[in-house]
Design a protein around this nucleic acid. Sequence first.
RNA 1: GCUCCUAUCGUCUAGUCUGGUCCAGGACGCCAGGUUCUCAUCCUGGUAACCCGGGUUCGAAUCCCGGUGGGAGCACCA
Length: 508
Amino acid sequence: MPLFIKPGGVRCRIAPSPTGNLHIGTARAALFNYLFAKKYGGKFILRIEDTDIERSDKVFEKNILEGLQWLGINADEGPEAGGPHAPYRQSERTASYKKYIKKLLDEGRAFYCFHSEQELKFEAKEQMSMKLPLFHLCSFRDMPQSEAETKKAAGQSAIIRFKIPTEPSNHQITFQDLIRNQVHFFTGLLGDFSIAKNLETPLYNFAVVVDDHEMAITHVIRGEDHIPNTPKQLLIAEALGWTTTNEFGDIVPPWRYAHLPLILGPDCSKLSKRHGATSVDEYREQGYLPEALFNFMALVGWNPGTDKEIFTKEELIQEFSIENVQKAGAIFDIQKLDWMNGEYIRRKPLSELAELTMPFLKESGLLQITNHKSQITNDYLKKVLALEQPRLKKLSEIGERTDYFFRAPAYNKGLLRWKDMNDEKVLAALKRAEEIIKLKVKSLKSKIEIEKIFLEEIGEGDKGEILWPLRVALTGKKASPSPFEIMEILGKEESLKKLKTATRKITG
RNA sequence: GCUCCUAUCGUCUAGUCUGGUCCAGGACGCCAGGUUCUCAUCCUGGUAACCCGGGUUCGAAUCCCGGUGGGAGCACCA
């Protein structure tokens, strides 16, 4: 299918409404728009759809802006970046909407509807009970505008509806979708849908069309949940005179559509709160790296057709192809995200990882404690991180995994037992370890040397008999890096101190 | 209820247009083994899918028809 790319002319947009924090689904849609635009050297535009003043909140707008920035999905035009089609907030674009609503009203393509919400709800219920399709062909559709104005002046409240063409009575609307090819709808089932509460407050379907036109959008890439809105938007665009007609008589808008498959929760329904984390900042707080999330989201619903899975942003832009986007919804598999995040963590230079984990260490209280006790240097932290790097899936795990480097670990003495050892044997093992450290090991500078000495001392015996109690004494954990690596970082004095604590746990 | 979208391992997917090289490939997960005091990393192996039924054809995951399943949408939300 032709992609309708004019060189440098691609203009994509993400149009979130600030009624909640940046949702994973919105971020993914933004990502695909971004990748598509960048691939063809075009522009990615951010537009805030805050026409619903009741539900919109600046706090959410800020969250969305920050979330996209964190992910590295940067807008070329938007409320912050500015641009030739400013303003980029719908709440600041009312003049445009007003102009076009008036136009439709004057040309008889829209009308005032005086039905109350209760009346409409009742009608909907009736239709439902009669097993009729749910739509509203309004009885006010043919009221002359002058009469409607008088009614309004008398204080009757009204909303503005689009007058669905009834000639021909059940016209088929077809549009081309870059992902799904042709999609068909019938106008007979649409009803006279609402387009504005009044001249100043447009509703979604109307505002989108006006803005996409005014912002010269070339490709509308959005979630599949918008497919049913498309015929309405097409009809509005047509009424406003922005469309052309192809040889089959189909309405052809000035932009192309691409409807993305939905992101689903584990139960195959649209990803929502009850599935757990749905907002980008929840992932950020859990210690997922933006590059990992970026990479992972690109792979849900799309793949390059090769075995490659780890991509830089630039590679993704290069490789992305809208024609390889999946049609069916995709479950958001956190296990795979975890794996990928681990991959990214393992590839991070230690200095960067140190910076990234710092906030998490502070949050778990580990950094403050040591700050006044002993000098915790960046070098020390880097050594600790080098040990945990292959184990870390999320940055937030860092505290629980490395606490013993910063404070005395809490554990039960039973943990010190290797296999079926009794207290006496544990005590002997600890003593033995202490002796080896004290007498045989000159300094604890090299883990290789420490290991060599320990293995020589243990000889043919069960290594676990000494190494397990030693390691638990050092860490207080049943799983951790090797005692040699740990002692290298801890140093002789601190290591012996921890052995003593362990001994006391048993002797009481 | 109505409308629309959709269908390959548990999950993300390759292969479908241009039928044979696919008793279906990769990745995550899971299982087993190796390295190992433990855990992780790393390495080796394994597990597991063409929604169903017809047809076309020498041959179908791939083409046609009919079912079924799943999802989304039906606001004075976006």
